[in-house]
């Protein structure tokens, strides 16, 4: 059984930051998150770095390729690779996405959207149960950012996630940037989404940057690009959530156009300052 991530700030680990992180013991970092698929080689530098970092930091293993939302059965070979990685590093958390990335023989290397229906709910609940049985731990499932919605969807996203928690006992990874991106893209209210969100199931928060584009009608379309600072609107929503929940493990994701370490460190410090504020939760 896994321990829990510490209720502090983490960053998505990028190998180019390795030396800077090692040389910065005062950084406000309680945990690191890795993309599982980047550590599925046998040895070499990725594992040498991770083994060294693991001695100092709590670890979150975040999968981006299991295709839990896919139509096909889970890829047993991939599940076995995840199990090997988790047994090797004993992370405090394992998480994946409410999305699919493989179909037929092809892997698309993207987190793709799915219809929310009783049939997809049943299938994904089965997949989550299989993951938890195989890995021997509770997993966290992340809410997606989406650009399209399916006509056949009959269940709201929050209700869908809540039902998965109830059926499988999994936890949730609340990506607040994803909430904001999807809310703008689909003309819904991010605060209403968060008001309904089952916060008691949240084991980790993600914060990341997005880009702005335009949709077919000239309306704003936000892209979940992870290549820029967290937007002010997302910081505000984050502070509101933390005021309700108290401190939670909170991660800065910056995967593209990766900045120098001091820039990422400053984002982490900003998140740490939000976690340090007295909350209604703590006062209650």
């Amino acid at each position: 059984m896994m321990k829990q991530l510490p209720a502090g700030v983490g960053v998505g680990f990028k190998p180019e930051h390795f030396d800077a992180i090692i040389a910065d013991p005062a950084a406000p970092i309680a945990f690191l998150e890795i993309h599982a698929e980047n550590y599925m080689g046998a040895g070499g530098r990725p594992h040498a770095q991770l083994a060294q970092l693991r001695e100092r930091f709590a670890l979150s293993v975040h999968g981006v390729g299991l295709s839990i939302g896919g139509e096909a059965p889970l890829d047993n070979a991939h599940l076995a690779r995840l199990k090997t990685l988790i047994q090797r590093y004993r992370p405090e958390s394992f998480s994946e996405h409410l999305a699919w990335s493989s179909h037929g023989e092809a892997f698309f290397n993207d987190l793709l959207p799915l219809p929310y229906t009783p049939a997809t709910l049943a299938r994904i609940a089965d997949h989550i149960a299989e993951v938890q049985d195989t890995l021997g731990c509770r997993m966290l499932l992340e809410n997606p950012s989406t650009y399209v919605r399916f006509e056949e969807s009959t269940i709201g996203e929050v209700d869908f996630l809540a039902a998965l928690v109830e059926r499988t006992g999994c936890g949730l990874l609340l990506d607040i940037n994803n909430v904001f991106v999807s809310a703008v893209n689909h003309g819904i209210d991010a605060r209403a989404y968060l008001a309904d969100f089952p916060l008691e199931a949240v084991g980790e928060i993600h914060l990341g940057g997005h880009d702005e584009d335009m949709d077919d009608n000239g309306a704003p379309l936000l892209i979940d690009a992870h290549g820029s600072p967290v937007a002010d609107a997302v910081w505000t929503l984050f502070a509101e959530v933390i005021a309700r929940t108290g401190s939670l493990p909170s991660l800065i994701e910056w995967d593209n156009d990766v900045p120098a370490w001091p820039v990422l460190r400053a984002e982490a410090a900003r998140a740490a300052a939000v976690l340090a504020r007295p909350s209604r939760h703590a006062a209650a």
Binding site: F108, N109, D110, L112, Y147, V148, N185, D215, D216, L221
Partner: peptide, 25 residues
């Protein structure tokens, strides 16, 4: 078909992400 004529730019984000991501790899 379900996105034709109403969400083509939106769908194109996914198509672009897939191709750009794999080419970058």
């Amino acid at each position: 078909p379900e996105f034709a004529g109403r969400a083509e730019r939106r769908f194109a984000v996914y198509r672009n992400n897939v191709m750009v991501g794999l080419i970058r790899a």
